[in-house]
């Protein structure tokens, strides 16, 4: 989420490509626009976000805490969505993934349920 603009962003209001924000978790400075031209709301390196939009009431949120990625959702057209959870107030949000998001963390989250199944998966081989 955009936490503030740098000086270069203020000097060039017509060009949003130079607008940046700092990740609240890893501190990486990232541009607010991803390579595909869409606005991003999470860090491409650690995929963490910031709680600035209240999705229950609508409008800006007063929370402002860090949001950690908890799940991968697959849309009907095969695109992936990232589900975030606020570490302070537990609100859930979903956002589209950007082309330069960390693929290793995405895959790690996708296979995470299979690492700790609640039932033995061997039974499914006999079905």
């Amino acid at each position: 989420m955009s936490t503030g603009t740098t000086d270069s962003g203020r000097n060039h209001p017509a060009s949003p490509r130079v607008d940046t924000f700092g990740c609240v978790r890893c501190g990486l400075t990232v541009t607010t626009v991803d390579p595909a031209g869409d606005r991003r709301n999470h860090c491409p390196s650690c995929l963490h976000s910031r709680h600035v939009v209240d999705h229950v009431e609508g409008g800006p949120s007063e929370c402002g805490a860090r949001m950690s990625p908890i799940s991968i959702a697959v849309l009907r057209n095969g695109d992936w969505m990232l589900v975030h959870r606020c570490i302070r107030c537990d609100e859930l949000t979903s956002s589209a993934i950007a082309p330069d998001d960390n693929q290793l963390i995405l895959i790690r989250m996708a296979v995470r349920p299979l690492a700790q199944p609640p039932f033995p998966l061997e039974v499914f081989g006999e079905l």
Binding site: I70, S71, A73, V74, V83, P113, A115, Q116
Partner: peptide
């Protein structure tokens, strides 16, 4: 929508 895993390994 999707499956998530809590820190203690519980599916959600």
């Amino acid at each position: 929508l999707s499956m998530s895993v809590r820190a203690d390994g519980e599916w959600q």
